[in-house]
């Protein structure tokens, strides 16, 4: 499923317009993005939580050429699956 199919399914199940369903889905993911960009943690009960992990830079090597490469520090969001989702997909 992709985002537009999610919007369409939500609109059908709730008997609301595509426009209204778009506001719900887009605001949901945009709020999560904005919070993570601001360095906040995100917790959606029953689904999972997101937090930013900071990775330090290091000197690596290109595995095929052996060339040294500088890997810069980076921030990556990490998703931890919630108990509810974990149990649901294993039912």
């Amino acid at each position: 499923m992709n985002k537009s199919q999610l919007i369409k399914t939500l609109a059908e199940r709730l008997s609301i317009s595509i426009e209204e369903a778009t506001v719900i889905v887009s605001t949901f993911f945009d709020s999560i993005k904005e919070a993570l960009k601001a360095g906040k943690r995100v917790e959606i009960r029953g689904f999972g939580s997101f937090k930013i992990k900071e990775y330090q830079g290091y000197t690596g090597r290109n595995p095929s050429s052996g060339e040294l490469v500088e890997v810069k520090p980076k921030k990556l969001p990490f998703f931890r699956v919630g108990k509810g989702l974990k149990e649901y997909i294993n039912q």
């Binding site: 499923m1 993911f29 689904f47 997909i89």
Partner: peptide, 27 residues
């Protein structure tokens, strides 16, 4: 409405094994 959306998201992950939110990521 948000709970219903989460139910659809969970169902998609379980049944389609994939949910793609462009510009965000993929479950």
């Amino acid at each position: 409405q948000v709970e219903e959306m989460l139910a659809i998201i969970k169902q998609a992950i379980k049944e389609d094994y994939s949910l793609l939110i462009s510009g965000f990521g993929k479950f």
